[in-house]
Design a protein around this nucleic acid. Structure first.
Lengths: 197, 197
DNA sequence: ATATATTTGTACATATGTGTACAATATATG
DNA sequence: CATATATTGTACACATATGTACAAATATAT
């Protein structure tokens, strides 16, 4: 019967997430993480394989908890504009009131390692593309549901929404005032005819 | 009479800029940079002091060459919307066609180290705040010049513009198609009533 | 040739970090 | 107690990286 792990794997994922969110990827070495988790490097390799594998797992964990998940849960037929509005409202609140972290783990990652050709970078790029595709789908539903004019450029609007998300997530590294973040979001949403409270 | 340097300092700044743009800050060690410049670490420390000081100098150099400089050169009385439009048009073209780099050095930096309390992070944060203030000033001029309605929320519009810049600069790490980048920018500019070709 | 100021080079001591091999250990079961 | 199995621990060999001290080298003027 196998020996059981000395540490709680789910908890470790959480701890590592906070570490790379705070210090970035390059600064989160196997040695540093192992010390943080109070395990030897041997245990690290055994449990997680390598850094990239672990980071991907951390991202999956992170993705399940971001405001963007709201967009994933919408079903066709629901009103779309309030979903966008509420999601961004929430995103601004979370980013502004997060005293532990800065910005968004995923977008920070895109900026830090997005240019490299590592598997993790590809993974992050795919995530962004999926988000954009989802935004496009929602906008298409909004158009079909009469929330948007028939001549709306769905692709352009989706890219603008994606850009809005990305910008807010990065800008929140610097601007920590919820009112200002929300003002930027609201102004853009209104301009894009996606604001509805 | 002092000995002169063996290397061209301006050229060194340029080389270091490309290095950190490609590999990020943490990965650009004194050792790596010295090897890249083909100088000893002793010369590095003597010429540049330390990494942070050098990176700040690199940023000053970079700032002088980004499309955002267009906004700095506008004078009161000029028409503002075409300046925004042209600047963003140019930014999308540069980012899409840059095969050496990914994204924007400054915004990548904000994401990578923006959460830390280093001097460099503070420097980057100030740069972003200055950009936003400048956008606000231009928008105010546009309003006074009749390009924008008198009830325009200047602060909100400036924040939205800043967010647009930030988003594009990060998104361009992933989306390399100039048409798509420009579509996102154009859609947003039109929505914000700042588009004029 | 000499003085001078700056730059470059070398060595020292130390720190962080990596992958791997394999022994030691914890646990359930017969 | 013996056995099987997965986890933890330790050591090895190596790599990257840092700041500092100070000697050596160099360009220039006199």
């Amino acid at each position: 019967m196998p020996r059981s792990t000395k540490f709680d794997r789910d908890k470790a994922i959480e701890i590592v997430m906070h570490k790379i969110w705070k210090d970035g990827f390059q600064s989160s070495s196997v040695k540093a993480i192992s010390e943080l988790l109070r395990i030897t490097r041997s245990s690290f390799y055994n449990a997680f394989g390598d850094r990239e594998t672990l980071f991907k797992e951390v991202f999956a964990h992170y993705s399940a908890t971001t405001p963007l998940m709201n967009l994933m849960l919408v079903e066709q037929g629901e009103t779309v504009k309030p979903v966008f509005t509420k999601t961004l409202r929430e995103l601004c609140a979370i980013r502004a009131n997060d005293s532990l972290h800065s910005g968004c783990l995923a977008m920070n990652g895109v900026a830090e390692i997005g240019g490299s050709d590592s598997e993790l970078a590809c993974f992050l790029q795919q995530q962004l593309a999926l988000s954009n595709a989802r935004a496009e789908e929602l906008i298409r539903w909004a158009l079909e549901g009469g929330e948007l004019a028939a001549d709306t450029n769905v692709e352009g609007l989706a890219l603008a929404v994606t850009n809005l998300f990305v910008g807010l997530n990065i800008m929140s590294n610097v601007i920590k005032d919820e009112g200002q973040l929300w003002l930027a979001a609201k102004t853009t949403l209104q301009g894009l005819n996606l604001f509805a409270e």
